[in-house]
Write a protein that binds this DNA or RNA. Structure first.
Lengths: 356, 356
DNA sequence: TATGATGCAGTAAACGATTACTGTCTAGCG
DNA sequence: CGCTAGACAGTAATCGTTTACTGCATCATA
């Protein structure tokens, strides 16, 4: 069954596609009589018309679709993706998600996708993909807004200041009586410009403590878990573990508990990002909460601005993160100190699995 | 800077857009001389050409884009989305994600999107959206493959048999000595055709035990948590809690621990879906593991089949799930019994937050 | 009765690709 | 020399919209 087109409606009503287009896009308000408008709308409904968005995109140059670039859809990234969808919903924009990082050949990928199907891109913590993209498409690219913890001057940027949170975390565990405070990070956290590691080292220096860097290959739960198990079996554990992100904190949590290590009595534990999961453990995990709602809203607004006025100077802004102190790092008996003391997943979550 | 088009390449090489198109799409193999082909390819690279996919889609009728409909991008759904992206990657297809459920006006939504930008749709546990879609678009729709736990005869279907898992779970906790075995579910789980609840009731009947249904409004962690806390405070707890899904199990876990209830000694706990999180708790949570890889592969293949041969009869298949028994339900001292004894997130997870 | 406004709707040219056809040129053959 | 086949490339229609422009009544005004 062939799709219904403007022409079909036009001939049903006895008019032309142009008129139908004007009416259906709402651009015919002073131009087409109310009677005709009504007849066209009725016919459209009756025939089950829906526009061919490819044709529309071809002529308008807009697809009403944006891309989210993230390395994966798990964990923190999934949280962001979810919020971003909430932000987009009223806007009539769709979102295509690409795990840029996993694509074996960026250049080929960009060659194919530089122009499409998106009007713009929000790149979450993907500085290298962005750079690669900008190079590959030399000015002809859909605009990019970088978001996340990695600063860039090549695109609009909405960042989160995790460094302050990490410093606070370091001081906090010190106040709780920890002496040997380690930073559990990964290869990426070891890059020269990683703000979390730098903040950790800074804080340690300020307190006159020796920094201890524990580095895994990737920031996965399993990597953190096995590293911690190894440490525990050689009795080489620090008494505080500040983790690169919540994933690593959760892996470390499990590793410690498996080895019979008590949290926080033997080892105080903190994560970073503020994903909901951290709140549900026997000892809820202290974490640095990212302002995800704000991040998504700002990134979206920024992108819309850029689409409206492509030659604005590059914008950039940094949002604050906040340390949420929970049981995993609290040795003294003080009460919870946390921006959001309750589990952070109070975001309306309307339907159950199998729902809709 | 205007985008580069076929015409630009053509005039650079001194030929026509048609020829360029043939070469660049690989359809010019016997038709265009090798010399010309080379010149065209060089020019394309040099000018930084990338095709306008809207134009291509308009004439070919294919967008090389599919939609994933899910209610959210968290939890189990995020796991599926992630795997699906892995499945899609080699195929040169993109994925747009829509949380159909949250759209306030389905009909309006479908009116806008029925045709686009997708060649097909994979609908994860979204029976109502699918139905609504099929009605709204009467045969003119992009094909849909339903996936998940809710059976439908209106589209191709790749399902997962959770019922068997639930029965096994019920028998398992009974064997562990539980007498008062409750099912913690939500409004959706109470629908007449919910296979999990039915399986639970069946198993209870088979064992001659009284079924106890605990029902929350939605399947969220927080709902489960508060319900369980209430139960604990009125000393009305069962000694086993079979949860609708892992979300509810995790919420229940937290609720129980907050109230000082021991798992599994006081209450044995099981979840459903097999999301990685369940493996990291002090008492790792028994769960029914969905074969997500298989699910995604089959759904994708099914969709591709349908696109190739639109008038094939509807296909449907059911995949088995498997009970993964962990500490949260094991009262006797037996060893782990689990298809995958290790945490289920061994799927390559190449990069850390902030990576790329 | 000319003269513009004004209100409505049609005309036709894009947008950038794909593709069925048509055409030209050369070579080979009888 | 005439004819055909094959190799190569150009022509032009098409996909379904949007939109700048033109056209035609009708009606009020000078």
């Amino acid at each position: 069954m062939r799709r219904v087109t403007l022409r079909d409606i036009a001939s049903a009503v006895g008019t032309t596609p142009a008129t139908v287009s004007k009416v259906l896009t709402g651009r015919g308000d002073g131009l087409i009589s109310e009677a005709t408008r009504q007849r066209i709308r009725d016919a459209a409904r009756e025939l089950g018309y829906s526009p061919n968005l490819a044709a529309r995109a071809l002529v308008t140059g807009r697809t009403h679709c944006i891309a989210l670039w993230a390395e994966t859809l798990a964990d923190y990234h999934a949280v962001v993706a979810n919020v971003l969808m909430d932000v987009l919903r009223p806007s009539r924009y769709e979102m295509v998600i690409t795990d840029v990082v996993k694509h074996p050949d960026w250049h080929a990928y960009f060659q194919r996708h530089a122009p499409w199907p998106v009007d713009g891109i929000i790149a979450l913590d993907s500085p290298h993909s962005v750079q690669s993209y900008l190079e590959a498409s030399a000015g002809r690219a859909a605009p990019v807004v970088s978001a996340g913890a990695y600063y860039t001057t090549q695109t609009d940027y909405v960042g989160v200041d995790l460094a302050t949170g990490v410093r606070e975390a370091a001081f906090h565990v010190a106040e709780e009586g920890c002496k040997r405070i380690a930073h559990l990070t990964c290869r990426h956290g070891m890059r020269p410009n990683d703000s979390r590691r730098l903040a950790y080292e800074q804080a340690m220096a300020a307190m006159g403590l020796e920094p201890v860097l524990l580095v895994t290959d990737q920031s996965s739960r399993e990597n953190a878990r096995s590293l911690v198990r190894e440490l525990a079996s050689t009795h080489d554990l620090p008494d505080a573990l500040l983790c690169f992100n919540d994933e690593m904190a959760i892996g470390a949590y499990r590793g410690l508990r498996e080895m019979g290590v008590r949290i926080p009595e033997d080892v105080a534990l903190t994560g970073c990002d503020g994903i909901p999961d951290t709140a549900y453990f026997d000892q809820p995990i202290t974490t640095i909460v990212q302002p995800v709602d704000e991040l998504c809203n700002q990134a979206w607004q920024c992108l819309m601005n850029r689409l409206d006025r492509p030659d604005l100077p590059l914008q950039s802004q940094i949002l604050p993160a906040s340390l949420c102190i929970r049981a995993s790092s609290r040795r003294s008996g003080t009460a919870a100190i946390c921006a959001s003391a309750k589990p952070p997943d109070e975001r309306p979550n309307p339907s159950p699995a199998g729902g809709d």
